[in-house]
Design a binder for these strands. Structure first.
Lengths: 149, 149
DNA sequence: CACCCAAACTTGATTGATTCAAGAAATTGG
DNA sequence: CCAATTTCTTGAATCAATCAAGTTTGGGTG
């Protein structure tokens, strides 16, 4: 996790003003990978006291736009944020409990970045989400198969 | 697009009761790839007259659970539905206008299905979303680069 | 060092897709 | 044809996220 000075420098380098809410949010995302907005609000309030949810929403948007954090939002789930940026890693999402883990793709650093037919689109990112069951849900489940034979 | 008889057979085969709303929704998804729920409601009402939005939501959920249609929901966008199922194709999404096109991955039929480290997850699907700019938005845009050098 | 102004935060309300709930209608197996 | 369960209708509720207006603050300027 970044120190306050590191956070400050990261913000300045990105051309963002340095405020206590921004430092707290940036630190919270580093300390809590894949946390949703509500969790981050909680962490920030533990750190600073009263902070409006609107401020956290604004900060998360600014940090995402600046490339300091990355927003991920698996289908049917809330938006989540993480600090690993720029390394083109992907995510494994549990269909049962929604937990998320990081996954570096087996193919290489930029997997599947070239679609066979891009329909004239200028593609700049390939986002991969692996869907499945996490270890906990695998052992816990007694029945309820995903798709019976 | 499937005939009414085909739709009926598909529903029965999937173990679903055959109703007019279900036939209409299934046909609408076939006729309008990547349509969102609201568009589908409109198409269904053009076909049948009054149909509750709740019915369409329920039907879309049932069809998705049965594997007759596929739900896709790019981050920050509404849920959309399509009829191509089981062929592991992917999608290109325009960052500007949100339009979606199909893309078969260059790597093969099941690209990247094995993550280098799956953290003990039992993975059953790899969902890939290519992000970029569609041809229309590429020509229209005068400035506003995504990330300046 | 005081001032200024745009950016950032607070407060409070609103949006809008989706879901929940209870009763009416329709499908299908017997 | 009838009963039982599923499905549809109606109407309300949820809740993450956004919008809006006013206040505060960061950080460069004179």
């Amino acid at each position: 996790m970044p120190t306050i000075l590191n956070s400050e420098h990261m913000l300045r380098t990105a051309g963002l003003r340095v405020t206590r809410p921004r430092i707290a949010v940036l630190t919270a995302v580093y300390d809590n990978p894949h946390a949703d907005t509500d969790s981050i609000i909680g962490v920030v309030r533990d750190e600073l006291g009263a902070v409006s949810h609107q401020a956290v929403y604004d900060v998360l948007r600014a940090l995402t736009a600046a490339g300091l954090v990355r927003r991920i939002q698996p289908s049917g789930h809330l938006a989540r944020y993480e600090s690993r940026v720029g390394d083109n890693h992907h995510h494994v999402v549990c269909r049962s409990c929604g937990s998320i883990a990081d996954a570096d793709c087996a193919v290489g650093t930029t997997p599947c970045l070239t679609a066979s037919d891009d329909h004239g689109f200028a593609i700049d990112e390939a986002e991969v989400i692996y869907w499945g069951q996490c270890p906990d849900c695998l052992t816990t489940q007694t029945s309820s198969p995903t798709r019976s034979p």
